[in-house]
């Protein structure tokens, strides 16, 4: 076969082609890939489930699931791992979304850890996450015998996530071995697991934070009000804004102040800082995003308690 060497200066400049069908935007291409993944998993696994965290990524994933199986309903349930520290607005939004798309919603809480008063100040964030999120998730997957769980994680979020497969294999303890991942070529996914083993699936792997917001805008997907700026009571500590949702986060004699602010990513209220913002619409959020100098997880305490902490959590079974 011949090799054509093109001098770089004479490279053709693509010109628009007459047919209106020719151009597919990056969002259409990402959507088509995600739908393919959702259908593969639903067809190849016995008991799939979609982890629904109520955040923007989950909202996009839920819409993609509606699209993948239309006109049939979504053929798997949604699972929300409730740590007891989720914002009240998240819980009401969650119930409303599940009702409106007609999906079955399962909620799982690590009741014994919650009853024992587990919180990120009494423990450190890593152990708190370990009990309320990771342990609860593993218990729920085991209880319902789910063999595949969709998550909304994206590769652009964090360094160890950049190396995650779309089908992320987990052993019978739910753990991830980053050095022993299956090669994943083309769009051919190896769905074979032994009994007790499972996979986590990330249909949004190739989306960026900006893609997610643009898709929410284009598709008019509802998101929780906490993403939009308004006057909210916050504990103000230097640059950091801490929601007052849980009383125990307050220092002695600390008084909340009203701050025009919003949340950039949704987690548990004690560990999710807000940002000062005037962005009260999706276009305003997108425009704000273009000006950001920090990544979206910069305000998540759990990612920063030690070098490589996301990888450690993932090895233990975190999403």
């Amino acid at each position: 076969m011949p090799v054509t060497q093109i001098a770089a200066q004479s490279l053709p400049v693509p010109i628009p082609v007459p047919s209106s069908h020719e151009h597919l935007s990056h969002l259409r291409l990402l959507e088509a890939e995600s739908i393919h993944i959702l259908r593969e998993v639903a067809s190849e696994f016995e008991r799939p489930v979609m982890l629904y965290s109520v955040g923007k990524d989950s909202s996009v994933m839920l819409r993609l699931a509606q699209k993948a199986f239309y006109p049939a309903p979504i053929p798997f349930p949604l699972l929300h791992v409730d740590t007891g520290f989720k914002f009240a607005e998240m819980l009401s939004f969650r119930d409303e979304m599940a009702r409106s798309v007609g999906a079955e919603l399962l909620v799982w809480r690590n009741e014994s850890a919650i009853a024992a008063g587990t919180n990120p100040i009494a423990l450190d964030t890593r152990r708190c996450c370990g009990l309320l999120k990771t342990q609860a998730l593993l218990d729920a997957l085991r209880h319902y015998k789910f063999d595949a769980a969709f998550g909304g994680a994206r590769r652009d979020e964090e360094k160890s996530r950049a190396k995650e497969r779309i089908y992320s294999f987990r052993d019978s303890a739910g753990q991830w071995d980053p050095k022993n991942q299956r090669p994943e070529l083309w769009n051919l996914y190896n769905a074979r697991v032994h009994p007790g083993e499972s996979i986590r699936v990330f249909p949004l792997s190739n989306w960026t934070e900006m893609d997610v917001w643009q898709y929410i805008h284009e598709e008019k997907i509802p998101v929780v009000d906490l993403y939009f700026a308004k006057e909210r009571p916050m504990y103000v500590r230097g640059e950091a804004l801490l929601p007052i949702e849980q009383a125990f986060v307050a220092h002695r004699d600390e008084m909340p102040q009203m701050v025009r602010s919003r949340l950039r990513s949704l987690g548990c209220s004690p560990c999710t800082g807000a940002i000062r913002s005037d962005a009260d619409s999706i276009p305003a959020i997108i425009s704000e995003l273009l000006s950001f100098r920090n990544s979206e997880r910069a305000n998540r305490a759990i990612d920063h308690d030690q070098e490589g902490s996301m990888e450690i959590k993932k090895r233990e079974g975190y999403f």
């Binding site: 590769r155 652009d156 360094k159 160890s160 950049a162 190396k163 980053p178 050095k179 991942q181 490589g308």
Partner: peptide, 20 residues
Amino acid sequence: TDGLRAEREQGITIDVAYRF
């Protein structure tokens, strides 16, 4: 770009990383 602990420890890239 080297995201995994093993990679940082060994100073080499081991696995495929996707960047955007």
